[in-house]
């Protein structure tokens, strides 16, 4: 039982928190701009590597590099929008999707070019886990969960208490009506990119802290992010957050040896959990838990 909590549930919560931040941004972008942003994973990798550059150059800890990573990722998202997506705004959502695929490839190529293809890390060294009775928890895991909770709270306040956040929700509800009420659509779109980029950059640093960095790391979590967003109900940020948490737990629990000594699912196929969740959602509840758009 304790093994379940220590080695499966807690790591699942950590992975879930990372997916949640990614899926929330994905859902926000989908809600406001109505297209599936396929470069989202690569933005995440960009954030992780931006933090790596700061760690290497300034000798700071990756936690301290989070604001730098976020600040570096926002302009990339804004540039992709200004250079490419803004020019395609009147096209079909599919065209924007293909364009974002191209953006993702460009970001990934840039990371490969600068940092090379090999795995790397923030070099944090080993810290012994906290022992709370029978519970053993990695300190970095605690920080990741706390960080995700703070990010969720900040997003909640932004969306419900601020004028700009309300405008984002209004755009997601009905873009035409938002225009009639005088919302500066271009400004809301920029804000949405900024929020999504900050969230996904933090998720990237967290993922780098929890595991390793590779330029392809973002593309690898893209499927999970989408599965989480669709499970939650696409366009609904809180749905994305919940979907991310559930999916992260499901992925870790999938390798739990429930029956006999063998894991439920070979760890090599962990990615398959996201796909299975996606397929089951599409079959059983295509609008997602929170009734997406």
């Amino acid at each position: 039982m304790l093994e379940l909590v220590n080695f499966y549930l807690l790591p699942g919560l950590v992975l879930g928190a990372i997916y949640a931040m990614s899926a929330t941004g994905l859902s926000l972008v989908y809600g406001v701009m109505r297209f599936a942003h396929f470069a989202h994973g690569d933005l995440m990798a960009f954030g992780a590597y931006a933090a790596l550059a700061a760690v290497d150059a300034l000798g700071i800890s990756p936690w301290a590099a989070i604001p730098i990573a976020a600040a570096a990722t926002v302009p990339v998202a804004l540039a992709a929008d200004a250079l490419f997506y803004a020019r395609l705004r009147r096209s079909l959502p599919a065209v924007l999707l293909i364009s974002s695929f191209g953006t993702g490839l460009m970001i990934r190529a840039g990371l490969y070019f600068v940092f090379g293809p090999t795995q790397t890390g923030y070099g944090m060294g080993f810290t012994p886990p906290l022992v709370l009775g029978a519970l053993r928890i990695q300190v970095r895991h605690l920080w990741i969960i706390a960080g995700a909770a703070v990010a969720a709270l900040a997003l909640h306040l932004l969306l419900t208490r601020s004028r700009a956040g309300r405008a984002m929700r209004a755009m997601a509800d009905d873009p035409d009506l938002a225009r009639i009420t005088g919302v500066d659509v271009a400004q809301v779109i920029r804000l949405t990119w900024a929020v999504a980029a900050v969230l996904v950059a933090i998720a990237g640093v967290f993922l780098g802290i929890d595991t390793q960095l590779t330029p392809g790391m973002g593309f690898n979590v893209l499927l999970a992010s989408f599965a989480a967003a669709i499970l939650g109900g696409i366009g609904r940020p809180w749905g994305g957050a919940l979907g991310g948490l559930l999916l992260g737990m499901a992925e870790e629990l999938s390798s739990f040896p429930l029956i006999g000594g063998a894991p439920l699912l070979e760890p090599a196929y962990k990615t398959g959990v996201a796909f299975a969740v996606l397929v089951l959602t599409l079959i059983l509840r295509p609008q997602g838990l929170f009734r997406g758009m």
């Binding site: 599936a36 989408f226 599965a227 669709i230 796909f275 996606l278």
Partner: peptide, 8 residues
């Protein structure tokens, strides 16, 4: 959703 499912 097909785009996402095919990636999967």
């Amino acid at each position: 959703y097909l785009a996402i499912a095919t990636i999967g």
